[in-house]
Computed example of a mutant assay.
Amino acid sequence: MLRIAIQSKGRLFEDTMALLQEAGIKLSTSKRTLLVQAANFPLEVLFLRDDDIPQTVAGGVADLGIVGENEFVERQEDAEVVRRLGFSKCRLSLAIPKEEEYTDVSWFEGKRIATSYPCILKDYMSSKGVHADIHVITGSVEIAPGIGLANAIFDIVSSGSTLISNNLKEVEVVMQSEAVLIANRQLTPEKRDVLKELLFRIEAVKSAEDKRYVLMNAPNERLKEIIAVLPGMKSPTVMPLAQEGWSSVHTVLDEKCFWEIIGKLKSLGAEGILVLPIEKMIL
């Protein structure tokens, strides 16, 4: 059985639980306990603080962990990144008071920077040849300049609204982050097999994201033109209709180019276009 450590609350917790549910793993969350076993898969979930997950996985207390990449890099623990998960995206950025004039990273020379991510910040400043006073704090980092504790901050940014409300502006993006699945490097062959099945399920869920199954009726004389504009996984499915001279065309479209392609299909004579969501996709 695999033990996976996940964040005990917050957005990352919600996104992780949704992923496991979509992967068909049934977990009881009616009573929050430290350890919960899945009902239909050899997996148990250990709920922890996000900053404890890298060490827990590297030390073998948990076999796997889902954690923000920012926390994993900051903790510098020896674990393996198995898969990037594409959710809980954010960035680690430097921000300064809005009224300050900023040219480049040399602005931070000799300045005091408040952060909860000193290791990442130290490496970045070192790579730029800048010497700054890194002041480590936890909690509300963004208030540090306003109370005179620091000249700038280095913190997580999602929408940027927190910076604006504290009269700060983002000036340097140091790192992009998202949720990652990490694993202990010493997994047994049996646990590797379970991990392989878990990854198969996750891949099926992630492959279906932002994809739509599209069915349409197409005049046979325009079939070649219609098929030419379809960027499906492989060749689309084409089946004759009862009405002579028409066929049914089935394909999968990426949502980001969906409306552009639909417009082209209509101009080529496609009719009765039906769009369906995809829950899982096995490639």
Rank of each mutant, 00 (worst) to 15 (best):
G129R: 01
E260I: 06
L92T: 03
R222F: 06
G59I: 13
V136S: 11
G129P: 06
E197P: 14
S106T: 10
E99L: 07
E80L: 13
G272M: 05
I153F: 00
T16V: 06
M17R: 09
F47I: 08
L163G: 06
R91V: 10
S140K: 05
M216F: 08
H250W: 10
L274S: 10
L19Y: 02
G139T: 07
A62T: 03
S248V: 14
P118Y: 08
R192I: 13
A95D: 00
L27Y: 13
G269H: 07
A23F: 11
E71P: 09
E109K: 09
V171D: 06
S267C: 06
E14A: 13
R91G: 14
D193M: 15
M1F: 11
G68C: 03
I261L: 08
P240Y: 03
S116D: 07
D210T: 08
Q37K: 15
S116G: 15
F13A: 02
V180E: 10
G269E: 08
L35P: 15
N220L: 10
T251L: 09
A218L: 04
K196S: 13
L92G: 02
S116T: 03
L187M: 05
T188R: 10
P145L: 02
W107T: 03
R201N: 12
P219R: 13
I182C: 05
K234T: 09
M216R: 01
L12R: 07
I164Y: 12
G24H: 10
G86M: 11
V45H: 08
I4D: 02
T162S: 15
A38K: 11
L198S: 05
P54A: 01
I261M: 03
A228S: 14
N151T: 07
I156Y: 02
I182E: 00
E14W: 12
H131M: 10
V57Q: 01
I226W: 07
E255N: 04
N166G: 09
C90P: 05
R11A: 03
L276Q: 15
F47P: 07
K128I: 00
V105G: 03
I273Q: 07
R32M: 00
K169I: 01
E22A: 10
A204L: 10
R91C: 11
H250K: 00
T16W: 09
A58N: 11
G148S: 09
A150W: 05
L20P: 02
G110L: 00
R192Y: 12
L19F: 02
V61K: 05
A270C: 03
R3M: 09
T188D: 02
D193P: 08
L168S: 01
E77H: 03
R112D: 03
I182W: 00
T188W: 02
G146T: 06
R49W: 11
L34R: 12
T16E: 14
H135I: 05
M175A: 00
F258V: 09
L46K: 04
D15I: 10
R212Q: 07
F72R: 04
L265G: 11
I137V: 15
L35Q: 15
E260A: 10
N217R: 05
T33E: 15
G86L: 01
